[in-house]
Design a protein around this nucleic acid. Structure first.
Lengths: 233, 233
DNA sequence: CCGGTCAAGTGGCTCAGCCACTATGCCACC
DNA sequence: GGTGGCATAGTGGCTGAGCCACTTGACCGG
């Protein structure tokens, strides 16, 4: 435990920027959906380079606290930039099984409706999402954006604004489970295969088969997720 | 949920770099302590700018998977760059209370011994750690490095290689609880005050008071941490 | 009122370069 | 022999300028 052997660790610049950003959000009373100052402005007012500001924003991005839209600004996802306390994270995990049950009910019905009601244009959009996910995986990404698009396209094709609204209320939690699920080795390609099966059923107009395929898919995701949760000692 | 309204989200470049880095570590069979290629080399071989490589490395840094030493290269902390599965994280949380109990026992005794055995030079090192943490907090950081140095200095001043070895075996888990604890609002300054009390007792050679101050400090940390753990439904 | 166009604003990314720090090997000196 | 100092190359930290792609909103013509 000799001290002298350890390197001198100065805090990195981006960490200080992070602190200032958190403080700014708190002081300015910003809340979810509000826009952060532009990177150039932040760099100027903090007296650092844009690259350092960007590093800080990347950190906030991977922590899911901020969403940077190319050309459109950077937006707050929550009311604060503080990392979520473990307590709340555990709390949310406990509610997750319910969310996944709800998702199964909703998406199964959505797939069924989509098979019956989809227009050719909507079918095409679903297929594009499939292609997009395939490209993502080929590039080495996990396909999370393609996955999101696929489910969004199916939802749109079902032409049920009520079911779509329900989906919206659990969208955030679904996003989280999606990311975690697709991080499992081998998951992206298996998920793509299941999407393909759903697509084919919808393309064929086979409502029953589409519902079954979607149910199987959602249950797979739920299973992966539940394995990571240990409810008690 | 119309798809066309959503921005075209191409995966950010740094995310792709991240994937390639993970793959490289796996394929090259690198393990903890090994050095990653230099940023310039990575940028060249991946065909991206150094800024993008750096963004990816910053992500790995905040995830604790990598340690970048200014001028000395970037090193692997674990044998992999994959984020820790939630399952293992939960497992470790369950063991944490034991670790904190052990820490209380060890550090209390270490403080006591330090008060009796410390040399003037060692006392000076402890004071420097205190000053360092104060500066960190003044700069807006959370003081985690100063905290680490303080406890390391006290351990060294105790002149007990056996106790020091015991501390080493739980060092990793202590580091994690340290980081999390100091993230709580107001914690850094309160922690600094407790450190000061410990320092003064050691400086005065008051073993009993030093032990008591250290016990109080460690228990405070343990309390903060335990609040975040919900053992059952 | 609608739809198209255009300019300003913004994030994504690159390039070139300087600085601070580290690691290494060499060399003078003891 | 080895020990300490020192130069040098390598490396991460950070900057500034700049280009591109995309979004946004205002403006204008129909």
């Amino acid at each position: 435990m000799s001290e002298a052997l350890r390197p001198m660790v100065k805090s990195r610049l981006y960490e200080q920027v992070l602190e200032r950003l958190r403080a700014h959000v708190t002081e300015a009373g910003l809340s979810a959906g509000d826009r952060l100052p532009a990177e150039r402005d932040l760099a100027a007012s903090l007296g650092v380079s844009r690259a350092s500001v960007k590093q800080a924003i990347v950190v906030l991005e991977v922590q899911g606290l901020v969403e940077a839209r190319h050309g459109g600004g950077t937006y707050l996802v929550r009311d604060t930039l503080d990392v979520e306390p473990v307590e709340q994270l555990v709390e949310r995990r406990k509610r997750l099984p319910e969310v996944l049950e709800a998702r199964e009910a909703l998406e199964t019905k959505l797939a069924e409706l989509a098979a019956e009601r989809r227009t050719d244009a909507e079918l095409e959009t679903i297929r594009e999402a499939l292609d997009f996910m395939r490209d993502e995986i080929a590039e080495g990404a996990n396909g999370v954006e393609g996955d999101r698009r696929f489910h969004a396209a199916v939802t749109a094709a079902a032409h049920s604004s009520l079911l779509a609204d329900f989906m919206k209320t659990i969208a955030q939690q679904i996003t989280e489970s999606r990311t975690e699920s697709l991080r499992q080795p081998g998951r992206p390609s298996r998920s793509l295969a299941q999407h393909t099966a759903i697509y084919e059923a919808i393309a064929a107009g086979d409502a029953k088969k589409a519902a079954a395929a979607m149910r199987k898919h959602v249950r797979t995701v739920a299973k992966v997720r539940l394995l990571t949760w240990v409810p008690e000692d």
